[in-house]
């Protein structure tokens, strides 16, 4: 018996509705986030991640209320990301009932923010989200870079070096999304998952590309991920969380059943 690998359904929420796009374009409605979170809680999800992809600031208050409603009914860890730019944003989300916050572009713009956040709130609640894209050509040594703005804007920052730096700055966990795979259903980018998982001493959540249950197994065994995140396979009823856990357990992965 040991620490279980975690399965984390992810809710991408826009203006109070769960949506999921294919590489952030084709957005499909997947329901009310409170109902969706409750469903996954009942199914035995190990955590829930809530990513606010609402573009405008005005609609962010909706997010706080939604997080409050989820936290009042769901007694598993809840991570909230999207638009976390200041310590006050973190305080607001933790007060609303989030257990962790996920910091993405604010970390790229100002790495010291991660340090300040970890010092103030503790590493255990600071997740750094990394959106990585492969930049090496076929035949060259694999190399991935950090992209912002939903994968559109390159930063020139090496993803593995960045993950190491964020770990040193006090991040408690890395949420790694492959922008090449996100929404494709072709499986995780196992190369970058393994490279970052081996490079840092903190847990890594693999994200982006899950289309079938074998992808979850590959993320853990080949990618070395401590947790696997998926959205559309769960939202649209393709698989349930117990089916995913059962599949992983049959292949020798320790899960919470």
């Amino acid at each position: 018996m040991a620490l279980a690998k975690r399965i984390i359904p992810c809710l991408d929420v826009d203006k109070g509705r769960v949506v999921k796009g294919v590489q952030f374009v084709d957005i499909r409605d997947a329901g009310d986030p409170v109902e969706v979170a409750k469903k996954y809680n009942e199914q035995g999800a190990d955590e829930i991640t809530f990513l606010d992809i609402t573009a405008s600031h005005e609609d962010r208050d909706t997010t706080v209320h939604t997080v409050e409603k989820i936290a009042a009914e769901v007694f598993i860890p809840l991570t909230v990301g999207g638009g976390i730019r200041e310590l006050a944003d973190i305080r607001k989300m933790l007060n609303a009932g989030a257990d962790k916050v996920s910091i993405n572009s604010a970390a790229v713009n100002n790495p010291e923010f991660v340090k300040a956040a970890a010092e103030r709130f503790g590493s255990q609640c600071i997740v750094v989200a990394i959106d990585a894209k492969k930049v090496s050509q076929a035949g060259d040594t694999d190399r991935w870079e950090i992209f912002t703005h939903g994968g559109r804007k390159p930063t020139g920052i090496d993803a593995v070096e960045w993950a190491k730096r964020m770990c040193e700055y006090g991040a408690g966990e890395i949420l790694l999304t492959s922008m090449d795979r996100d929404g494709t259903k072709d499986g995780f980018d196992l190369g970058v998952t393994r490279a970052i998982s081996d490079a840092v001493s903190i847990p890594v959540i693999a994200s982006g590309g899950v289309g079938e249950l074998q992808h979850l197994v590959d993320g853990v065994i080949q990618g070395g991920a401590d947790a696997v995140l998926a959205a559309s396979i769960f939202h649209f009823g393709q698989f349930t969380v117990p089916q995913a856990k059962g599949y992983m357990a049959e292949r020798g992965i320790e899960v919470r059943l």
Binding site: A2, A4, R6, G172, E173, S201, P203, D226, R256
Partner: peptide
Amino acid sequence: SSNPEFLKANDEAAPSGERLKVPHMGWNT
């Protein structure tokens, strides 16, 4: 990570790709 026994367990686990990440985060028995 400052406990030698823990570090030894981590080293022994490493070849199979099963490193012990700190924080100890998740569901344990």
